[in-house]
Amino acid sequence: MSGGVAQLRDEGSQTQVAIAGAAAGLVSRFVIAPLDVIKIRLQLQVHSMSDPTSMRGIAGPVYKGTLGTLKQILREEGLTGLWKGNIPAEALYLAYGSVQFSAYTYISHLLDAVPAPYHLPGAATSFISGAAAGACATTATYPLDLLRTRFAAQGRDRVYASIMASIRHIAEHEGPAGFFRGLGAGVSQIVPYMGLFFASYESLKPVMASSVVPLPFGTSDAVAGTIASVLSKTAVYPLDTTRKRLQVQGPMRARYVHRNIPEYRGVASTVIRIWKQEGRRGMYRGLTVSLLKAAPASAVTMWTYERAMAALLAWGEKWKES
């Protein structure tokens, strides 16, 4: 505890944590879905508007910047184009939020129980718990993440007719491993990201709550989540780009909105190839919209989680009294 503000690991039972986490995931996904589609389209683009030599023979669209991509998707695919992949994404965020917060509180309690002199300081406990929770949630929900990416990568021409059709096609043509393409990059990214995020959030939360200018409606949780997210996302973004490039590998690679996505194999070789062929810009393509997405996503997630947990705790108290 610090400044009277409860740490996440001290709030609620495992069931309450799972419910609040699922609610936070669902609300967050609905809010940031269009930005997520824009980010994925930019990350999969291997050519640059500033390099005329890379524009030759491009069959798919060429996106320039966040606003330009938004306008182009609306013009060519309509409003629904901004919510492509939303069904698997909603399932992903619901499951991810539930597993993430449950694992975080469970692991935090285990580490808190370590006796002296081996007991870890609060920041270290938050980092390790966040990293482990992120790895667990990423692995458990990865097939949904892959489906979300593939549907978001579709243009006007549909690659998969439906969710079930995509599952059948991947199982038939790529096998079980097809659902986990890029998992190594996903875990490599999420471990430092979630570790940094939770450590930053737990440190910033009491500072924001006790600020000179009080923030209304519990928005101190949202502000802490926003700052923590921006810092963490920027640090690990190249691995996120690598994950997206690997997720669209397979027999349907040439049918996505970008027709010229290269064939990649393995995390390390993908990172090296992107760096050599596209430079730093390629590694960080879509970072601006990613931060625009990550900030409100984390803010909404943490705000919703804290509000849902407060409601569940209040309901639990009333249930005991009745």
Score class of each variant (00 low, 15 high):
D112L: 12
A6T: 06
T139Y: 15
G60K: 13
V187N: 08
K205H: 10
V159G: 09
A153E: 09
F101M: 15
K320V: 01
S200Y: 01
A153H: 11
K318S: 11
K71G: 04
T288L: 11
I190T: 15
E76Y: 07
P115I: 14
Y142F: 15
Q16G: 15
P206Y: 03
V236S: 12
S229L: 04
Y118D: 09
L79S: 09
P251T: 05
L287K: 08
M252G: 00
V257T: 14
S166K: 03
H109S: 13
V159M: 05
S50H: 05
W275M: 11
A89I: 01
Y256D: 12
G195P: 11
R181I: 04
A161E: 13
K71F: 12
T125D: 09
W303P: 02
G78V: 00
Y104R: 10
A135V: 13
A222I: 07
L8Y: 06
L144Q: 06
G195K: 05
G130C: 10
A299M: 02
P238F: 06
E321A: 08
A199R: 07
R158C: 01
G250I: 05
T241E: 06
P61Q: 10
T226G: 12
A165D: 13
S2R: 15
L204A: 03
A153R: 08
I73S: 06
G316R: 14
F151W: 08
A294I: 04
A18R: 09
Y284G: 13
A254K: 14
V114Q: 10
A22G: 15
M49Q: 08
T125G: 07
I128N: 12
A59N: 12
K244M: 10
L287T: 12
Q72D: 13
R158G: 01
A171L: 06
L313W: 00
Q43D: 10
P251S: 04
F151Q: 06
W315S: 10
A137V: 13
Y264V: 05
A124Y: 07
N260G: 05
Y63F: 15
S210A: 14
